[in-house]
């Protein structure tokens, strides 16, 4: 008998004569304490995300590329990794071309194997979109795609993330239901709630453990 058959046989034998317990999931317990008026959602998200050192800027659908350029100048970032095939990637590229004197944009447009060393050693910042956010826990929802791959939100030390204000949801349960997550999950789905951190030495909180040291969220208020 295989290990699988042995394990399952043992478990089944132990359950002989029992019936599976009923599903009495009470959704009120995970939704009601975590509801916010629409006008409170940004404030709630902001409170939680700023408490863990996330930088948050309020801007608009038209102005955000300019804000990114300004933030890059302030931080003296020498380049920015973007997803060129996404709408926000194209909007940023257009703005960059129009300005002309900004640090270069890098495109994540080929398999990581082709440029892994550059990604790790020479990519100081990245910009990605988000699918929205969760006010209850202060989390961004990120579903990496072929156009905007997983490592964009992980390897570069500074991560800029765009968030539409209208896509801030109350709680994780609501997000799962509203977008039917159970019907089909992507290869990788993420909730990101701040820059990478650790308290493994003496419980002292330190930011910039293995992922981004800075998470900068641009909230587009009019979108």
């Amino acid at each position: 008998m295989s290990a699988k058959q042995n394990i399952l046989a043992k478990l089944r034998k132990s359950l002989t004569g029992t019936t599976p317990l009923a599903d009495n999931f009470d959704e009120a317990l995970v939704t009601e304490p975590w509801r916010y008026a629409p006008e409170q959602r940004i404030a709630q998200l902001r409170k939680l995300m700023e408490a863990v050192h996330t930088e948050i800027h309020l801007t608009t659908a038209a102005d955000w590329p300019q804000r990114v350029a300004q933030l890059m100048r302030e931080r003296q970032l020498p380049s920015l990794l973007i997803a060129p095939a996404t709408a926000h990637g194209q909007q940023l590229t257009a703005y960059w071309q129009q300005c002309g004197d900004l640090p270069p944009l890098k495109a994540y447009d080929r398999p990581v194997e082709d440029w892994k060393a550059e990604l790790f050693n020479d990519t100081p910042a990245s910009l990605t979109g988000t699918l929205g956010a969760i006010a209850a826990t202060g989390s961004l929802i990120v579903w990496p795609t072929p156009q905007e791959p997983r490592l964009m939100s992980l390897v570069p030390p500074v991560h800029f993330a765009l968030l539409n204000a209208s896509e801030i949801h109350d709680n994780f349960y609501e997000v799962q239901q509203k977008f039917s997550w159970a019907a089909g999950m992507p290869t990788n789905a993420l909730l990101i709630s701040g820059p990478s951190k650790t308290a493994d030495i003496e419980q002292v909180l330190a930011y910039g453990a293995h992922g981004p040291k800075d998470l900068v969220v641009l909230i587009l208020e009019d979108r």
Binding site: L48, V52, Y108, D109, R110, P111, V112, A136, T137, G138, S139, P144, T145, P146, P149, R150, L151, M185, P186, T187, N188, A189, L190, L191, I192, S193, G194, P195, S196, K197, G211
Partner: peptide
């Protein structure tokens, strides 16, 4: 903590059209 910095949900290996993973 209300949540950890990362909640990482993995449902499969890299697909043909994906660039990493």
């Amino acid at each position: 903590q209300p949540i950890t910095t990362y909640v990482n949900m993995i449902s499969g290996p890299r697909k043909a059209e994906e660039l990493d993973g």
